[in-house]
Amino acid sequence: MTYDYHEPETVAEALALLALHGEDAHLVAGATAFTLLWRQGLLRPGHVIGLRRIAALGGITSTEGGLVIGATVTHRAIERAVEVGRYCPALTRTFASVATVRVRNQATLGGNLAHADPAQDPPPMLIALGAEVVATSAAGERTIPVDELFVDVFTTSLRADEILTAVRCPALAPGTRATYLKFLPRTADDYATVSVAATLRLADDGHVADVRVALGACGPTPVRARSVEAALRGARPDARHIADAAARVDADIAPFDDVRGSATYKRDMARVWTERALTELVS
């Protein structure tokens, strides 16, 4: 059994193919995840639409302090892009921490997000930055905040007639700090047992003006830790307030047992690594 492979050169051609083949079509960019799922028999499309030749989906553009990254840009290209480092060094480090050089050379931003594996690295960081994806269909474009993109394991809120075409990272308020921490008790190229991304900005009086926290590998989707944020917003960021806020993460996550740890252990580690991330941002 195999599939027909199509390589359109424009988004319009890709959308036409998607309309023609409907549920029997699957989109790929780097095809990293697809190749694995195909070989395991977990995906059996009759038609695969490759997006790699569509020039409009490549490239990284700085925009009034923000950033637009095309869906087919590889992890490695993002890791190496000067614009990304200028926008937010933690975003560079997030992409540099994914798997190995080989995977980063093949896997793309759009593929990463559409694949919706809850343990991947970019989603929590993009959620913490307040990024949104652009979903393009024949009807036009709509934007979806990254923290509303993920519905379940391997499931997004993208419609079957939509293509994830870009990611928009908003301009960050001056003084915003960001970090991404990945707890890797096994090997450096592993998926995280838990991961924590956070952005934080202090007001002139030293209180927390704004904070966003998101975790990976803590349930069926990457998750925003709104309880932690609420506990810290407006607070003085001393060790006690940070520890108290980090402990609230328990209400935001729903981890499950797997080879990287029991649910109980992940709950403990989520608290510990959230506290570490927030401590780093205020020190």
């Binding site: 995977v103 050379n105 093949q106």
Partner: peptide, 13 residues
Amino acid sequence: GELLSACLLPAVF
């Protein structure tokens, strides 16, 4: 010139 895994790359790429 790019380092890749030949087991993950569709040959058509």
